[in-house]
Each structure stands twice: as C-alpha cells, then as structure tokens.
C-alpha cells in the first residue's frame, strides 16, 4: 500500500523560504503571486493491507517523526 504525506507549515508561522520563492517569482515576471508556502512531500510504501491500520500507523509516524507539530500540519493520502 502506498501513501503520500504532505507536511506544511501552520498558518501564522513565518516561512522565509516561501517568501524568498515568492520574491524570486515576482522578479522573474510572474505577477500576481499572492503567497507561497513551502512544505515537504513524502512517499511511503507499506506492507500493511488494512487501510484503517495503515492510517493509524502513518498518523503515529507523522506525530513522532515526519512532522514537528509545534509548527507543522500534516495530511495523509492513501492510494488505492
């Protein structure tokens, strides 16, 4: 079973990298970019075949390691 995990900064947490990307896009002539937030995308392949168990396991992985929940949110997407 394959899963995709998106880790993003919580709203309100300053993202200097996102701001630098936004600035660069503006300099390159891409007008109208209102905001850029940079995050992480992690692909995980599991042996588990039970979706509910896989989700619970992935949730624990995010809580313990993949995201720092002080500043980051995460979203889990399990592929069919």
């Amino acid at each position: 079973m394959k899963a995709k995990v998106h880790v993003t900064l919580k709203s309100g947490v300053l993202d200097p990298q996102g701001r630098a990307i936004q600035h660069a896009l503006g300099v390159m002539g891409f007008d109208g970019v209102k905001d850029v937030r940079q995050g992480k995308f992690i692909e995980i392949e599991l042996e588990e075949t039970d979706r509910a168990k896989a989700r619970a396991n992935l949730d624990a992985m995010c809580q313990k390691l993949l995201a720092n929940t002080v500043i980051e949110n995460y979203a889990i997407d399990i592929a069919d």
Binding site: V13, L14, P16, Q17, A20, N68, V70, I71
Partner: peptide, 16 residues
C-alpha cells in the same frame, strides 16, 4: 528540542 526536553523549535534563519 526535537526530543521534547525543551519547548519550541529552531527554524530556518529569517535571513535565509
């Protein structure tokens, strides 16, 4: 801090 011995987090320097 990541281990939870101290609160908060160290982020990328504001000046990058």
């Amino acid at each position: 801090t990541e281990a939870g011995l101290l609160p908060g987090v160290l982020m990328r320097n504001a000046g990058l």
